[in-house]
């Protein structure tokens, strides 16, 4: 599964993995803004932004092919709407949209590949995201896989009873079975949330979730921020008017 792959990438011994999540988030946003504000994607711009993303891939020792393939997740949406633009006669704009969304997704993937989710969420809080939202996202991420596994088990149980077979005639009962399964999953999730709440209280939780780490930005992190911002701004301004 996707997150297992990202996990493996997170553990690689790259320079990018060692950097502070805040630095990576800032550079990612700068890259995305630079890309989003490009008036038009010239071939030089594609090369420039592609090179920046590749630098990220190299510094994180990420598999180039893997990043390239997984960034393709945006293509269904991008191609669908680009097809509309293309049909309207603006072929250049259509290609522009596809490449732009692909490059953006690749950049997000590079940062995700080099940064564990909890660190990134903390960085978002540092950037001003509401604390409550970030905590919800933390718990969402923590129990995402636990519950997915549970859902997977239920799906297997359903399959083993032959619930995938049968034609249109049976679809009503199949729906009822699927609805029932989700209701069970819902109830179990609620019970689990209550149990988590109890476990937090049992260990002395009294309304405030304290942070363990208050990491300092190291020299390398500042290098990343400075280089990232300069390169993004440079590519952005250098190429916007080159063509």
């Amino acid at each position: 599964m996707h997150h297992v792959v990202l996990d493996e990438w997170n553990r690689r011994p790259g320079w990018l993995q060692k950097r502070d999540a805040r630095a990576k988030l800032v550079v990612l946003l700068a890259y995305l803004v630079a890309l989003a504000t490009m008036p038009r994607l010239t071939p030089q711009a594609v090369i420039g932004f592609g090179a920046l993303a590749s630098a990220g891939v190299a510094s994180g020792r990420l598999p180039a092919l893997g990043v390239a393939l997984r960034a393709g997740a945006v293509l269904p949406f991008a191609l669908f709407f680009a097809a509309g633009v293309w049909l309207s006669g603006a072929t250049g704009k259509a290609a522009d949209l596809v490449v732009r969304s692909y490059l953006s997704a690749a950049a997000v993937l590079v940062v995700m590949g080099a940064t564990p989710m909890p660190g990134l969420l903390r960085a978002m809080e540092w950037l001003g995201a509401p604390r409550f939202l970030v905590q919800v996202a933390h718990f969402l991420y923590r129990y995402l896989f636990v519950l997915s596994e549970q859902a997977q088990h239920m799906r297997l149980a359903a399959l083993s009873r032959g619930l995938d077979r049968g034609g249109f005639r049976r679809s009503r009962s199949l729906w009822r079975a699927a609805g029932g399964a989700l209701a069970v999953l819902f109830a179990r999730s609620q019970a689990r949330a209550e149990a988590i709440h109890r476990a937090m209280l049992a260990r002395g939780y009294a309304g405030r979730l304290a942070e363990l780490r208050n990491e300092r930005m190291e020299a390398g992190d500042w290098v990343l921020v400075a280089a990232g911002l300069l390169l993004c701004a440079g590519v952005r301004t250098g190429l916007a008017y080159a063509g």
Binding site: P116, M117, P118, H138, F139, Y141, R142, Y143, V146, R192, A195, I196, R198, A199, M200, A202, R203, G204, Y205, A206, R208, A210, E211, L212, R213
Partner: peptide, 24 residues
């Protein structure tokens, strides 16, 4: 508790172990 997943709720193991201390 019986189910460890319900009490290891912090992002990493060390944060979870430190939870009670931080709460105090």
């Amino acid at each position: 508790f019986q189910d460890p997943d319900e009490q290891l709720f912090m992002p990493t193991v060390v944060e979870d172990v430190a939870f009670a201390l931080l709460c105090r």
